[in-house]
Design a binder for these strands. Structure first.
Lengths: 196, 196, 196, 196
DNA sequence: TATGAATGAGCATTCATTCAT
DNA sequence: CATGAATGAATGCTCATTCAT
């Protein structure tokens, strides 16, 4: 039973390389030769690990996003002094992460809009836990009287959309522009604070 | 010089057709055969009007954006009851226009990020007059004491960025999501209103 | 209006070359590079005349068979001394033609069995007029009392099948073997002669 | 030497599986992966039993044909009432067998025409015993005065060729068409019967 | 002996671009 | 001016075959 390489490890390695290539050139302008060369493998070998180009793309993105959002399902964000601070911390953390992984974000945006017909659903699914967490924080804040009564669903959506916009600015414009979105987000959260 | 007019007319005609094709299929998935066929010309003839595919794309987009923002240089927006209402009307008008031309917007976003290396500058150039108009309105409002004192440049940038986000949501998500951005924009403008 | 080459002529030239290549290598083992090279054209150019490889194959065969059977719709075969001699002449003519175009025949057999799922129908369609002619000759012979009463349809079918077998022997075996089929065919026709 | 037996057994098993795959998909459209998977072996292992794909094909066919014609070397066919009935029985038996194994026959025809350059010789070799048997039956009939004097070699060849034609019709056309060949064969044998 | 891993060679197809007329 | 004709350069994908373990 010869088993020179760890199949899963190789797969991940390829995906990592592929993600870089896709991020740099986009799906259409990239080609398997590049990915193969960067992987130190032949084009044919890629087909032992993945069905086709789209398959590689799909899994590269999947892995990328799963890594990115997995932590927001944790409970560590709930014990804050003020629920809005919890939300704010989460949002800041997401934006910081995004800022540190611009390539992945860029790729994600271009990518999903091509493969997944319903980007909205795709993002929704991936951020479902995150949205749930924010919703819970908002509700507890309203219950405790520290967040003014508001339509929770709409506020959650606003927050998510601003986070998306942050990523968009990051991708297509600059870090500076993205930071402006951060101030808007902060300001929107501020409005929710109940005046005593 | 009647020939010259024909030449220009035909050029514009090609660009118009090209824009439709690009909007429908995207840059990569479109091809010159389609544009030629839709123009009623041969593929080779396109090369007498433009250097190459990218050239056609570039000018098609340029024309598209120029058409879109040309009206915001007018002065009709200045005579409003409250300068913020003027800004609001302009923003709403832009967003309405965008909503009515989703394909062009989508194209624009994907396009410019490919050709123009500095998307930020490109957008800046195209919206320069618009930004100038908003800035003037803000300043006059502050001078008149109806807009609270604020960093005008930052506010203008916020507005522009939110408008961009509106377009982004329109392109990659849905009309509904985009409308959420509109509420954020309204809310941000509301904050600027001076309390008496 | 430049028109350096006659489109139809070029098409025919390509088909002629293609037929040779297909006849020599078979459909699967042939490739467009070969056809292109033999045509003195580039691979890409072939696609200006035909949709794809299968298309070239299809038309090459179509042309080949149309040429081959077109003459049997003529009436020149009817004025013979004995209707069986007419049939015999036709059959001999077909077999002679086949013997002179072994490559085309070989190609036809391999080809149609791959592309056309219903080879039987394909051959039937192409030999319909021929069958009709033989049927008419048989009937007139029976009416005149020089051909013994028989099931005309079955006899026609026998003749066609023996002609096919002749081609089959020609293709997969040898000219000599095929000639044995000719003697069988002759002998079968002889049986039909009415003894006085 | 138990290993040796296993080796042969496995070889036969592979050939059996291969024959099925080849019969189903044809030589070109089949691939070693399929054969390997169906054999429960890895692709690489096949190369320990056979040189290459063509080798597998060759032996698969060889085994197939040997199985098919092996019984006609027996003597059970000689004790018939009339030698022509013996021949007729043999021919019918062959045609029945062929009709029951259309896939193998089809494969055989396509196959041998590819690998064996001299198909005629190949078939001759495989049917040598059969031809010998028929020849003996014919001669004994002539000697006994129940079969009219004829060129035995030619008649044997006719019979073999009609049997081939039966298989050909079976492969490329239909069972019905093949049956027409059977009537021709019967009719040809009938002619040999000596009139008293 | 068996096989997981890797690959070279090959193929159909697309398309932007050039050029002679 | 306009265009029919031609093509080079890519690209995704397949598969028989080799080899180290």
């Amino acid at each position: 039973m010869p088993k020179k390489v760890d199949h899963e490890k190789r797969k991940e390695m390829i995906l990592k390389v592929a993600l870089e290539v896709f991020a740099r050139d986009g799906y259409d302008d990239s080609n398997l030769s590049d990915i193969a060369k960067s992987s130190g493998l032949s084009r044919a070998t890629l087909y032992q690990y993945f069905q086709n180009k789209e398959d590689i793309y799909y899994y590269a993105l999947k892995q990328s996003t799963e890594d990115m959002f997995v932590k927001y399902s944790e409970v560590e964000w709930t014990g804050k002094s003020h629920p809005l601070n919890g939300i704010l911390d989460i949002c800041d953390d997401i934006m910081d992460t995004a800022a540190r992984n611009i390539d992945q974000i860029r790729n994600l945006i271009v990518a999903v809009s091509k493969i997944d017909q319903q980007l909205e659903d795709a993002v929704y699914r991936r951020t479902a836990k995150l949205q749930h967490l924010i919703r819970r924080l908002l509700r507890s804040g309203i219950r405790d009287g520290v967040i003014s009564d508001c339509d929770v669903d709409i506020e959650v959506r606003r927050i998510v959309i601003l986070l998306e916009s942050y990523c968009f600015q990051l991708t297509y414009f600059s870090h500076d522009s993205a930071e402006v979105v951060r101030t808007v987000l902060h300001s929107q959260l501020e409005i929710l604070k109940k005046l005593e």
